[in-house]
Design a protein around this nucleic acid. Structure first.
Lengths: 151, 151
DNA sequence: TTTCGTTTAATGTCAAAACATTTAAGTTTG
DNA sequence: CAAACTTAAATGTTTTGACATTAAACGAAA
């Protein structure tokens, strides 16, 4: 559905304003979509984001600040999110050998297993992948325009 | 800055995945930007969203559910947000004459004044408007691709 | 070495989101 | 009309976000 229909907007919008609202609306829509996919696994969006970041740097771990700088939502409290994941056994925390201020966080074997399980379920859940209506080149163009939007 | 640089991503991403992450990242970036602009006025993003919706339907008011259905973030608790705005004198609440379950919320004169003040400040704050690097046709293309992304 | 500033992570606090639940008013049906 | 159902708004509760502050460890300079 078009943005104007979604927001029941009456007056016509300026193109940049329309793009801005559409970014925020689409992100909120995506958030809702992803939360529903993650709920059965007891993960929130930011928690899943951390797991994927750690999976990407496996087998090396990352410090709390390194995780934070790679997150989509930089305002989240990584210390507390990591502690939650640790209590679920999905990550491990090891004090840094040389710099004792730091804590190195790594994904655990159960954490990796959960990620592959979620990945598998995503292909078979019937709802399709978000963005699947875009061609590859449209997706690339979209990403490029978003980069430019932030300039 | 490009998304890969922002997220310090090492591995190359698939186009649709890159678009998805870019939408969420850009929205988070925008959220941060807008919150900073609104802070001096004591407004949060959702509160500002409600004020603008009510301004758009002025002088008619809207019911709580009508407001909710027009919001960017549909998960917000409109009753409580409206109560905050009412305490600040920015909106007014009138029970509906025919259906006493409903409450009609309208923007007040101080509310309208605040909106025009914010609008003015936006042009003179030096940080520029988000998305100003896009041409009009790029902004339209971006909005169109986002509509298609949600299909 | 001691002091000062910086960096890293954790914690404290308050407001807001994310649910569900409740209350009240309206509508439909037997 | 009364009971059951539906809708609108408010409220309850728990978790999370947003932001400041603290605590500990490191590095630089007197």
């Amino acid at each position: 559905m078009k943005l104007e229909a979604e927001l029941k907007s009456t007056k016509p919008m300026q193109p940049r304003q329309r793009a801005l609202l559409n970014i925020m609306f689409t992100a909120s829509w995506l958030d809702c979509f992803l939360s529903r996919q993650l709920r059965p696994y007891g993960l929130t969006g930011p928690q899943y984001n951390i797991l994927r970041i750690l999976n990407g740097s496996y087998p090396k771990g990352l410090s709390v600040l390194d995780i934070k700088s790679r997150m989509i939502d930089r305002s989240s409290n990584v210390s507390r999110l990591v502690e939650k994941l640790r209590l679920s056994g999905l990550v491990e925390r090891v004090p840094h050998a040389e710099d004792r201020r730091m804590v190195i966080v790594s994904i655990s074997e159960p954490g990796k297993k959960l990620l592959t399980e979620i990945e598998k379920a995503r292909f078979t859940d019937g709802h399709g992948t978000p963005g699947s209506k875009l061609t590859e080149s449209e997706a690339m163009e979209l990403a490029h325009l978003l980069d430019k939007f932030r300039e």
